[in-house]
């Protein structure tokens, strides 16, 4: 392969990695929107809390004894998902459910308030400085090309991100399409009131979507925390914004759309940084969003919303 194509390959690998985690976070936005039609702006903060919990668990476990690394990561993942889900559930219960049925704007403000609250709550309880974790997973799976020209590397960490994202997304897709609860979710997305009349506890289903979204955000929190090694209470804002963009890009309300949107956004960012000065990364990524929305207002895979009479 030529140097130029190796370089392109490397940038696509980088883009897919970051895109996978956008997709994981975007699921939370898209599922909640699909069912109750609101944007949960506190979702980025749930991701950040997932990061913090996994950092605390990993540091704690490594400090008390010599566990094997996969076990440490597994425990961290489970604890982070549990705690983040609890936060997701509580946020819905406290800040959204009492406002459901009122003006959409009110729920939006409540969500923004929740986001600011969680950010400052973590900043006050954990300190607002960067928290760092030494690299746990290093080395690369694949090296292509030669050192003299350009070497493509796929690190174990990147591979882990891909695999975990792929497994999670497959599991989620199966859950939504095959299980009873998944069917109930789809029914709620179609018509919340009708589903309720048919004897399904819609409140439970709505709570469930918040819990699933939060759990996936926690997975992203752990993965990105390990990948970058640095977190602070404010990482949720930008990650949330990017993931929200990914959700809108793919078609908000659509789960495959969120996955696709995340990957497209990630790869676009990487390729922009690759061939233009990297300061234009966000300009191009968000410019793409505007362009796609101009031609497809519902996003790439979104269905046009039928106004309910």
């Amino acid at each position: 392969m030529t140097e130029a194509s190796l370089y392109l390959l490397q940038q696509i690998i980088n883009g897919l990695t970051i895109g996978s985690t956008y997709a994981l976070i975007a699921i939370g936005y898209t599922m909640v929107y699909g069912i109750i039609g609101m944007i949960n702006f506190a979702h980025g903060e749930i991701y950040m809390i997932g990061s913090y919990v996994s950092f605390i668990v990993i540091t704690g476990l490594l400090a008390i004894g010599s566990f094997v690394l996969p076990l440490v990561l597994f425990i961290a993942l489970v604890v982070a998902m549990l705690i983040a889900s609890t936060y997701g559930w509580t946020v819905e219960r406290v800040a959204y459910r009492p406002l459901r049925g009122s003006n959409r704007l009110i729920a939006l403000i409540s969500a923004i308030g929740m986001s600011i609250f969680l950010q400052n709550y973590v900043a006050l309880s954990q300190g607002s400085r960067d928290v760092a974790l030494a690299p746990l997973i290093s080395g690369s799976v694949l090296e292509l090309g030669s050192l003299e020209t350009f070497e493509v590397t796929l690190s174990w960490m990147q591979l882990l991100i891909w695999v975990v994202t792929l497994v999670t997304m497959t599991a989620l897709t199966l859950f939504i399409s095959r299980s009873r609860m998944g069917r109930a979710c789809r029914a709620c997305a179609e018509d919340l009131g009708m589903t309720n009349l048919l004897g399904i506890d819609t409140n439970r289903i709505i709570s469930l979507t918040f819990v699933i979204g939060a759990a996936l955000a926690a997975i992203a929190g752990l993965l990105l925390g390990l990948y970058y090694g640095v977190i602070n209470p404010f990482v949720g804002f930008m990650a949330g914004l990017k993931a929200f963009t990914a959700a809108v890009l793919g078609g908000i309300g659509s789960i495959p759309g969120a996955m696709l949107g995340g990957l497209i956004l990630g790869v676009t960012e990487a390729l922009t940084a690759a061939y233009f000065p990297s300061e234009y990364k966000d300009v191009v990524a968000f410019g793409l969003l505007v362009t796609i929305l101009l031609f497809r207002p519902t996003g790439i895979l979104g269905k046009p919303e039928v106004e309910k009479v």
Binding site: Y7, I18, M238, A273, A274
Partner: peptide, 19 residues
Amino acid sequence: EGVTAGDKDFSALIAKLQK
């Protein structure tokens, strides 16, 4: 070149530096 303060992912920039 500039990077965005607060950004976490510099993999694209690093690949470019390597190239």
